Amino acid sequence: MTFDQPKTLAEAGPQTGAAGATIEFRGLQRSFGNVRALAGLDLTVGRGELVALLGPSGCGKTTALRVVAGFEHPDAGEVLVDGEDITRVPAHRRDAGMVFQSYSLFPHLSALDNVAFGLRMRGVGRAERRARAGELLDLVGLPDRADRYPHQLSGGQQQRIALARALALRPRVLLLDEPLSALDARVRLTLRDEIRRLQQELGITTLFVTHDQEEALSLADRVAVMNAGRLEQCAPPAELYARPATAFVAEFVGVMSRVPAHADGAVVRVLGRTLPIDGDPAHGDVDVLLRPESIEVVAAADGSAQVLGAAFLGAVTRLSVRSAAGATVKIDIPSHVAATLPLGSRVELALPERPVLVAPRKEPARSSSRPPHEEGTTTMGVPRSG
């Protein structure tokens, strides 16, 4: 099966864009020397769906994207689009548009000509391709920048031009390789919303690669968390956060504290309470994984825990508290309540009566000379994985 584009825009379908396609990865494997980038990846992306590939550097997410684009060929496995095997179809014959992290605009072409470049390569007439490029510039909010060259545009504007260029050929698959990582925070938020609006409006099936969990959770219909070339879990953002399938997902997505505990079958004893285990029974020493909003903290002069640090996050403040067992846990409480708990305060910790996730006991890392509130974190407070 090949994906040759129509020669004219009239043949390409309505102005709202082509219908999205399904994408299926079947047992994809890819190695670079001794490094295994993909280790049997299985994943299906629905028609018109936006799926974010999320994971630390080196997990295989960009390799998976490049396999769909045709820039990499797997050592084993298949990629199917609408049920047809495209694993060996050349990149230029795949119905896919790609936006890179580095914009990759032609410096000698105007914004309009950059957007129209793919149409020109497909033999679309000058008047028609300029009209279509103009429509796309309007779509991405840059109709007044048509004659500007890349060096005359901001980073956010250049990435909008790159997005418009990827959409010009009406692809059924849109591939985004960390397109926002080079932008400042304010522009990144604005463009993130624009990408989601356009994707939903045009109905394009989209794969979005990122290592930023906040970006993935706020943008995607489903988030596919990858680790060491394998898929750990693929689920809607709320499910991924509330019901992580593995300890890796639990700790990579959002903030999670490990608290030493003792399991006895279907229950576990933690922070003075016996709670049901969420998942398979366990026995012996384990760690209970707790979200910062799931732990309650109460001031107590003779409390068994102590406040070590605080990070103001607006409406809430994230406390670092050392438990009686010696574990440092993160706890989110209203900022006006946190103001009554200065550093060094004695407190008691409590948990609500609901199932908790457990994982094999993990030995604590060697203590750092930096106080807890100075540890490097991502935008959602998870230690950055590189």
Rank of each mutant, 00 (worst) to 15 (best):
Q5V: 07
G13C: 05
G13D: 07
Q15K: 10
A18D: 03
A19S: 10
G20N: 11
E24K: 09
R26N: 11
G27Q: 11
F32G: 01
L38H: 00
G40P: 00
G40D: 00
G40L: 00
L41R: 00
G48K: 01
E49W: 07
V51K: 09
P56Y: 05
C59W: 06
C59H: 05
G70E: 08
F71I: 10
H73G: 13
D75Y: 02
G77Q: 06
V81R: 01
D85V: 02
T87D: 00
R88Y: 06
R88L: 12
V89T: 13
P90F: 00
A91M: 06
H92F: 01
G97S: 11
M98Y: 04
M98V: 14
F100L: 11
Q101I: 09
S102D: 15
Y103M: 03
Y103K: 13
L105M: 07
V115G: 01
R120K: 13
R122N: 14
G123Q: 10
V124F: 08
V124A: 05
V124T: 12
A127L: 11
A127C: 06
R129I: 11
D138W: 10
G141W: 07
L142I: 06
D147W: 02
Y149P: 03
S154D: 01
S154E: 02
Q158D: 01
I161D: 06
L175I: 05
A182W: 05
L183T: 12
V187D: 14
L189T: 14
L189H: 13
L191C: 10
R192C: 14
D193G: 09
R196F: 13
E201F: 01
L207Q: 02
H211R: 02
E214I: 01
A220G: 03
D221Y: 13
A228T: 04
L231G: 06
A235M: 01
P236S: 03
P237D: 04
T246Q: 11
T246S: 15
F248P: 13
F252R: 13
V255Y: 02
M256Q: 08
A263G: 07
G265C: 04
V270D: 02
G272Q: 02
R273I: 04
L275V: 11
V288P: 07
L290P: 11
P292F: 09
E293A: 14
E296W: 04
G303C: 06
V316D: 10
A324K: 03
G326E: 00
T328V: 15
K330R: 12
H336L: 08
G344M: 07
G344Y: 03
S345C: 02
E348M: 05
A350V: 04
L351N: 12
R354I: 03
L357A: 12
A365M: 12
R366Q: 14
S369A: 15
P371W: 07
E375C: 04
E375N: 07
T378R: 00
M380E: 07
P383G: 00
P383I: 00
